[in-house]
């Protein structure tokens, strides 16, 4: 049985159930790398120039850790998910870059997801991906449809039960979260509600964000993340803030930021990687919006491999204290 490696980084959090169902349906075995460790980050960083962003370094570290454990590594190039809305360069060329900097990796299973080029192109691309396992187009189609259904179920689960990506993958795929979440059961008992805004590969990777969710919950706060909001609401928030999306995954930053600054949250924390091109503009849009509306407080945390844990904690404490003071004053 072919073993397909899926690195636990970047788009893993959004799409794992879909990918897993697709490959398993076609008779492959899916191997997932273990949660990020310091060794992975060091290994990934050593391969690329220093300015490369943290998530990509982490991704390469995961690829390195999978190198001996699988026959193929799945690295998709997600180019656009909506017409004329493109992704960051690092996603556009991810398979090429992985190949260039990790020449010893197993063959890379690459696929181009580009909706701007039309639906037929997408179907052809899915078929081409399936061809690695079967020559039967119907079987590929069936696998594709089942995978898509799995993805929809995954999204619905997250909206309905207000789950993070990690919890939902745990429920669906049985991949245990690193540390059990100590969620505040009753929303009313929570001291404050803090919304995290940013890409799942930052919010969900507990190693690179220093267990942000866990820390906030330990302090008695309820934590909300972008995947708990319906796509429709996120999109309408984008239109309100910027007039229309420019980046793929803009909804996770501008959409969620716009939504949480008006609804549900007492404070919003944006989390971005140092040197991230799209986020440097999108976070600024959110920051500017919050400064104009003067309603819900907003803080932006920039993380990179040198971020000190103590620094993050200090800022989190200061932020939550400020919100509580604000709340007390209002009541």
């Amino acid at each position: 049985m072919t073993r397909i490696g899926i690195p636990r980084a970047l788009l893993y959090y959004q799409y794992l159930p879909m990918w897993k169902v697709f490959f398993e349906h076609l008779g492959a075995e899916v191997v997932i790398s273990s949660p990020t460790t310091q060794a992975m980050l060091t290994g990934g960083s050593a391969r690329v120039v220093a300015d490369t962003c943290l998530p990509v370094k982490v991704f390469l570290g995961h690829v390195l850790s999978l190198a001996d454990e699988c026959d193929l590594i799945f690295v998709p190039a997600v180019r656009s998910l909506e017409e004329k809305v493109y992704n960051c360069s690092k996603f556009l060329g991810l398979p090429d870059m992985t190949k260039a900097v990790i020449p010893e990796s197993p063959p890379i299973l690459e696929t181009d997801i580009d909706i701007s080029r039309g639906k037929n192109q997408l179907y052809r691309e899915i078929y081409r991906l399936g061809r690695h396992f079967t020559r039967n187009p119907l079987k590929v189609k069936q696998a594709g449809l089942t995978a898509w259904q799995a993805h929809l179920d995954y999204r619905e689960l997250m909206f309905d039960h207000k789950l993070t990506h990690i919890e939902a993958t745990e429920k669906i795929c049985g991949i245990p979260a690193e540390k059990p979440r100590t969620a505040v059961e009753d929303p009313a008992s929570a001291r404050t509600t803090i919304a995290l805004v940013g890409h799942p590969y930052l919010i969900c990777d507990e190693f690179i964000n220093h267990r942000l969710i866990y820390r906030l919950e330990q302090a008695g706060n309820r934590v909300l993340t972008p995947e708990m909001i319906t796509t429709k609401e996120l999109e309408s928030a984008i239109i309100r803030l910027t007039g229309g999306a420019y980046w793929t995954y803009e909804e996770e930053v501008v959409g969620a930021g716009g939504y949480f600054l008006q609804n549900e949250a007492d404070g919003v924390i944006g989390i971005m990687a140092f040197g991230c091109g799209p986020d440097s503009l999108m976070m600024d849009t959110v920051r500017r919006h919050s400064a104009r509306t003067k309603g819900v407080p907003f803080m932006c945390l920039t993380i990179e491999e040198h971020t000190a844990e103590a620094g993050v904690i200090t800022r989190l404490e200061a932020f939550t204290d400020m919100i509580q003071r604000k709340k007390r004053r209002e009541t």
Binding site: V49, K90, G93, M97, V101, G277, S280
Partner: peptide
């Protein structure tokens, strides 16, 4: 430019 997205990719691939 510092933090340029496409050129960082190019810089990574060029030596190979």
């Amino acid at each position: 430019p510092f933090t340029c997205l496409p050129e960082i990719m190019a810089q990574n691939i060029m030596p190979t």
